[in-house]
């Protein structure tokens, strides 16, 4: 009797999913990477110097890993959390005291968030120090800056969600700073001239009102859980794609062409 698994591999079902055989050829190796949706971001070939740990510090990858952890723990937290001023704080307390592994989940989310801000900074530092922002990678540097901003905004919106004193006042201070921006903040310069008041400025847009309340919590929540992660994901994949397209991870200038 033949091995049923071998039979199965010859079936049309298997072949419709995996369109190649597994002979160890260089072509098959390349196809294994490029034919996989998750792996095709990896270059088919890579320079040895580019994967040296002491050169990249792995910070971009770690940041992405933290993002995935945050994504997963965040989804679990959403099962227990209600973005309502009456309930939010108590839900967080219950996560801490009642939900199985709730404290673990929450702490994982919180520490990963803190860590992600730090790793993004270190990543930027590395990119700056290795001169990887230089042409032809200058546009990807800009994408990176946008991603830094998105990380900070995610951190900021997430800060309000426990609805405790710390978050409440942090958002109060933060949005008051926005209110002092020129043109768009009601306390900023030129706002009077263009008719910006406390009820139509940037702070109002952020808070959904003129004080931190229920609508501010809901806005923070929606941005934190849907809006910002979605935008960040789009930028992230564009960022990764550009790494490939701009010539892979940077390395020492080999042939003085300007392209590393």
């Amino acid at each position: 009797m033949k091995n049923p698994f071998t039979q199965f591999r010859k079936s049309i079902v298997w072949k419709s999913i995996f369109r190649r055989d597994n002979k160890d050829t260089q072509r098959n190796r390349a196809r294994a990477i490029s034919g996989n949706v998750f792996l095709h971001f990896h270059p088919v070939k890579i320079r040895e110097s580019a994967i040296k740990y002491k050169f990249t510090w792995g910070m971009g990858g770690i940041t992405f890993l933290l993002f995935i952890i945050l994504f997963v723990t965040g989804v679990f937290l959403m099962f227990y959390y209600t973005p309502s001023a009456d309930q939010a704080y108590w839900d967080v307390k219950d996560l801490e005291y009642q939900v199985p592994f709730g404290m673990f989940l929450r702490n994982l989310h919180r520490w990963s968030a803190h860590l992600m801000v730090i790793t993004v900074m270190i990543h930027m530092f590395r990119v700056f120090m290795t001169g990887s922002y230089k042409p032809p990678r200058q546009f990807n540097w800009v994408i990176g800056v946008v991603l830094l901003l998105l990380t900070l905004l995610l951190s900021f919106t997430g800060y309000l969600t426990p609805w405790d004193q710390l978050g409440f006042w942090a958002i109060t201070v933060g949005t008051n700073m926005a209110a002092a921006a020129p043109f768009i903040g009601f306390e900023g310069p030129f706002s009077e001239q263009i008719g910006i008041t406390v009820y139509n400025d940037i702070r109002f847009a952020l808070l959904g009102g003129s004080t931190v309340g229920q609508s501010a919590l809901l806005r923070a929540y929606v941005w934190h859980c849907i809006g910002l992660p979605l935008i960040a994901l789009i930028f992230m994949f564009y960022h990764f794609w550009r790494v490939r397209k701009d010539g892979g991870i940077s390395g020492p200038n080999i042939n003085n062409t300007g392209i590393n």
Binding site: A85, W163, Q165, T172, G213
Partner: peptide, 9 residues
């Protein structure tokens, strides 16, 4: 009822 918990701050 609604006013009670939202009195944070």
């Amino acid at each position: 009822v609604g006013e009670i918990e939202s009195k944070v701050g």
